[in-house]
């Protein structure tokens, strides 16, 4: 994946301007689309047949990915199941909508331009998409396949956040600081 220093983020005329090497937008598109397919509820998206086919092919992997994206909210499996019933569909729908908006601005040529008031979609989608590739508990020493992509997404997310809020303390990954 692209080295983080090859990506720049700045604010200009009410937009975040994300400049990347040419191959990055395509990689981001593929990641965001994978996230959408993962969280889509059949019937929600108009791509229900595609989602259903993907899940038939990869049902176990899909379940594992969803578990990484949405870990239990309670220690109790009963309470976690109730939480899922109360909030799961809305969480997935909100994330899907944010990902759709992110995808829309990835289609154009040149630097990626994101209205500042839409930056939150990017912070959410980048933050969540990492779990397509890694688990919260993965340690650097036993990084799985996809760790580089996860690290790249996290770095872009960090650059967006600290560009918008330069007063924030810089620091490392949470557990390493």
């Amino acid at each position: 994946m692209t080295a983080p220093e090859e990506v720049t983020v700045k604010v200009a005329a009410g937009h975040l301007v994300i400049t990347t090497p040419g191959r990055v937008p395509q990689a981001l598109r593929e990641t965001v689309r994978a996230l959408m397919l993962c969280v889509a509820d059949n019937g929600l998206t108009g791509v229900g047949l595609e989602v259903a086919a993907m899940r038939r092919r990869h049902s176990k992997a899909h379940r594992q990915t969803l578990d990484r994206l949405f870990p239990p909210a309670y220690r109790s499996s009963v309470l976690s199941a109730r939480f899922e019933l109360r909030h799961g569909a809305a969480i997935r729908a909100d994330l899907w909508s944010a990902a759709e908006r992110v995808l829309a601005v990835l289609d154009g040529p040149g630097p990626i331009r994101v209205p500042v008031d839409a930056a939150d979609d990017w912070i959410r989608v980048l933050g969540t998409a990492r779990f397509l590739y890694v688990d919260r508990r993965d340690r650097p020493g036993r990084a799985p396949d996809g760790a580089a992509m996860s690290a790249f997404l996290g770095d872009v997310q960090l650059r967006i956040v600290t560009t918008l809020r330069p007063e924030l303390p810089t620091g490392e990954i949470l557990e390493e600081a």
Binding site: R130, V134, G154, L158, T170, I173
Partner: peptide, 15 residues
């Protein structure tokens, strides 16, 4: 909110 091996300190503060 739990510690993890993924999130950056600044992002956690922001959120």
């Amino acid at each position: 909110v739990h510690d993890d091996a993924v999130n950056f300190y600044a992002v956690v503060v922001d959120v």
